[in-house]
Computed example of a mutant assay.
Amino acid sequence: MALRFLGKDPNSNGGNSPTLYYDDERDTYVFQSWKVLDPERLAQLSLPEHETVIEFPRRMMRFFPEVADVDPRV
Rank of each mutant, 00 (worst) to 15 (best):
L45V: 13
P39C: 05
G7D: 12
Y21H: 14
R73W: 02
S33T: 12
V36H: 07
M60Q: 08
P18D: 01
M1N: 06
P72I: 03
E51Y: 13
R73G: 07
T19F: 00
N11C: 13
P39A: 15
S33I: 05
N11P: 09
I54D: 07
A68F: 01
P57K: 08
K35Y: 05
E66F: 10
R73E: 04
V53R: 06
N11F: 12
D71F: 08
V53E: 00
D27A: 11
Y21C: 11
T28H: 05
Y22V: 13
V70A: 06
R4D: 07
N11T: 08
Y29L: 07
F56P: 05
R41A: 11
F5N: 08
T28I: 02
P72S: 10
R62S: 11
F56T: 01
Q44V: 11
I54T: 14
A43F: 11
L37C: 12
Y29E: 08
F56Y: 15
P39W: 13
N16D: 03
M1Q: 12
F64V: 10
S46M: 09
L6H: 02
S12T: 14
D69Q: 15
P39V: 14
T28Y: 03
F64A: 11
V30M: 04
N16P: 03
Q32A: 13
R26C: 00
V36L: 11
L42S: 04
R26T: 02
V67F: 02
V74F: 06
P39S: 13
R62H: 02
R73V: 07
D38C: 12
V74L: 10
D71K: 12
S33G: 15
L6A: 10
E49G: 06
F56K: 03
T28P: 04
E66L: 06
P65W: 00
M60G: 11
R59Q: 00
S33P: 04
M1H: 10
L20W: 00
V74T: 09
R26K: 15
L3P: 09
S33D: 09
R4N: 13
L45P: 11
D23S: 06
A2K: 10
D9A: 01
F5R: 02
D71H: 05
D27M: 08
W34S: 14
P72M: 09
E40F: 02
L20E: 06
G14S: 04
R62A: 04
R41G: 06
D38L: 04
G15Y: 00
V53I: 15
L20V: 02
G7P: 05
L45C: 14
Y22M: 13
L45Q: 15
P18N: 07
L3V: 04
L47S: 14
R59P: 10
P10I: 12
V70G: 05
S33V: 02
